[in-house]
Simulated scan of single mutants.
Amino acid sequence: MQIILIEDDKRISDFILKGLEENGHFVTLCKSAEAFIDEYLQHSFDLIICDIMLPGMDGMQLVQTIRYKKIYTPILMLTALSSVQDKVSALDFGADDYMTKPFHFDELLSRINALTRRFQYAQKEEKSNVFLFGDISVDVQQHQVKVANEEVVLSPREFKLLNYLIENANKAVSRIQILNAVWGITFENHTNVVDVYISYLRNKIEKNRKYIFTIKGVGYMLKTEE
């Protein structure tokens, strides 16, 4: 595993470096938050271990900066600050775990392994939230839709409608069912809003082929062919 350690205390950093490398990890040491930012832009890492009390930008500010830049690498805070408020602040700012000094090295290894497992599981879950139907790709997490690998911009309501149709692909769904699922309306009330939004959606996703079919007397069906 590629780990980056941000620690300015040589005694502690030497101890962690030695232990992690003996356990088969590759470790890069940075002695300040600024050095980390420069290093991270050049390489990617599987885990960040960060002290709070650092020269210049402190660890709390660094965690905020990391998350602001949409870097989602797991972060383990390792610090002498042990108050409940310090822990809460670190976790609220974006850290994934928090250990206080002094610590047992075996516990550090266990925390690293647990963080890695959680991150890998989260990645698998995120991948499982990408749905494919024909040449349509819907990423639920990123709220992104692509048709034939070209991004299509949908409004929140159009996105919810497409998602509902994909969940019920190859099944006829009535206008009332769509109203209930997409708008939260439980009766039709003489509205044509479903037909209007179906038309919007067709114009955006039916670039190369027809997907949304009208089922006479019922409603609509999402399928890949007549």
Rank of each mutant, 00 (worst) to 15 (best):
N168S: 09
T65L: 10
Y220D: 12
H143A: 04
D14A: 11
Q2I: 03
L165M: 11
I66V: 14
H25P: 12
M57R: 06
N180G: 06
I52Y: 01
M1N: 09
L29T: 00
T73E: 04
S155D: 13
A148Y: 14
R117Q: 07
Y121I: 10
A90E: 07
I178M: 02
Y164N: 14
F93A: 06
S89Y: 11
D86C: 03
A122S: 13
E225V: 07
L20A: 03
A114N: 15
F213A: 08
T191C: 01
R117K: 12
A148I: 02
A80Y: 00
L154H: 12
K124S: 05
Q64V: 07
T224P: 01
I52S: 02
N180Y: 06
H25A: 09
K127V: 11
K160D: 15
S82D: 14
L29D: 05
T65E: 12
D14Y: 09
N180K: 14
I66G: 00
L108I: 09
T28D: 14
S110L: 10
F131A: 07
V193Q: 12
L161N: 07
V196D: 01
F26N: 13
F45K: 07
F15D: 00
V138A: 02
K160P: 01
Q64H: 10
D86M: 11
S155H: 09
V182S: 00
C50M: 09
E188R: 07
A80P: 07
K87N: 00
D92N: 12
K124T: 11
